[in-house]
Design a protein around this nucleic acid. Structure first.
Lengths: 253, 253
DNA sequence: CGACACTTTGAAGACGATCAACGCCGGTGG
DNA sequence: CCACCGGCGTTGATCGTCTTCAAAGTGTCG
């Protein structure tokens, strides 16, 4: 079997030999999921662990009123259902839907549990992964409770640069504004209005293209409230980015 | 060493022999933390893993404006810092302060990491614990984004009954309204005002004492928006409580 | 009794949701 | 080729909710 490049560099498998990793990976199989298709639905039994190879997946819940709340939007290299499985949760807590055409590696529930049991490094990597997610979720809950819509959007654009390795000086939104608004728990109209306010704070958004003119200013705007400051991974990653772009670049295009 | 009762029943140590567990526990020591004292501060190096034996601990962050946001309030049997440690986060992401006088078991960072490495069942229990926390944090973020202040409070009072094993038909708030409001990310004044609205929905709060007159009504009020429905642990636990109280009780006091 | 922490209540203002209208674009079908 | 449509995003007006500031009420402990 051909191991996709993205899986080779996954922190989840670090500390294992290539042989071990490849044997483990043979326990899964590649499947694809077309744009708009549902991978699994809220309430269905949890049957698989997934690694997203390419494409974008939206995780959401529908409440009694029929409103969708997007819980997360995943990109290649991210995983699905590890939390449900390790928590021995029998039914899916969210619906997963492909935003783009996706290719996905699929493993059984027992594969994940057994691998965690048999390979200590894997269990520790998984622990680290879930601990990080847990932290992100906590921070998000805090943000939702304390930040204004404008700050939420600014913070989101910042994180975008880190997660997708975008250049703050100019990048394109990787998915629709409707989806972003739903992800941030605000209405599309509110989202749209924050963009004009951000223009006064040094972020220009025109169509899909974003330019963050003054990274420092935005950090102050967001992190004054974010209060995670020096230990915030986003903050650190952005600082590294700022350092790099301060230096002359080797290969320009 | 005397092992506190609360630790014996901790899910974290399930799957280990009593011998193994006691040997492990010998690696920690008991300490106390007086009311108002700080156990550790945001930004300090992470040095320990803690299990709270008795008392109440507030986890909070202070932002640039000097506002406190309470991230969590812990009771006996709950643990501190497992997430930071497994995530190899070097500095504390929150401040921990004793609300009551507390007694705490303290372990070194390496104790936790080594135990997870050497005892697979412990690693899996830890994985499950962190996965649960991660889920709770996700749900909380969703609630913060979608529920009104009144719903947040109703939901909080429900959960209280489960976490503290209170009888919904009458119980006392285990800590101050100021702390609860800070925990829910709303202002004390707003919290106070929601209580009158809840009276119209079948919850009476007078001073510290709470009576939930109609559990079903509150569930509809909250879970219509909560949308976690059948798979929500809170929901399930409440159902069990309702079943139990429907039956005549064996030992009344 | 008075000091103090905690809580409640009132009034004003800010912010986001909602409803409605419109502009923009890509596709489809006549 | 143009007319029509549907999905997506913007803008305006209005309304309800939460915050903020101010003042007063409650309770406890010395």
């Amino acid at each position: 079997m051909i191991v996709p490049e993205i899986i080779r560099t996954l922190p989840l498998f670090s500390g294992l030999t290539e042989q071990e990793r490849d044997t483990l990976l043979a326990g899964g199989h590649l499947r694809s999921c077309a744009r708009g298709q549902t991978l699994f639905q809220h309430g269905e039994p949890v049957a698989h662990f997934y690694i997203l190879i390419s494409g974008t997946i939206q995780l959401f819940r529908v409440n009694a009123e029929g409103n969708e709340k997007t819980v997360n939007v995943l990109k290649s290299g991210q995983t699905l259902c590890e939390s449900e499985i390790m928590d021995s949760c029998r039914h899916h807590r969210v619906t997963a839907k492909a935003v783009d055409d996706c290719s996905i590696m699929e493993f059984s529930v027992t594969w994940l549990k057994d691998t965690a049991k048999k390979h200590t490094p894997f269990a520790l990597n998984l622990l680290s992964l879930i601990a990080q997610q847990s932290h992100l979720a906590e921070v998000e809950a805090e943000h939702q409770a304390t930040m204004s819509a404008t700050q939420l959007v600014a913070c989101f654009l910042q994180r975008m640069c880190v997660l997708y390795d975008f250049d703050p000086a100019g990048f394109d939104l990787p998915y629709s504004k409707t989806l972003i608004a739903s992800r941030l728990g605000i209405e599309l109209e509110t989202f749209s209005r924050t963009l004009s306010k951000l223009r006064e704070n040094g972020i220009t958004v025109k169509g899909n293209s974003v330019v963050i003119h003054d990274l420092q200013r935005i950090e102050d705007f967001v992190c004054g409230f974010c209060s995670i400051a020096e230990d915030c991974p986003t903050h650190q990653a952005l600082e590294r980015k700022a350092e790099n772009s301060a230096r002359p670049k080797r290969h320009s295009h």
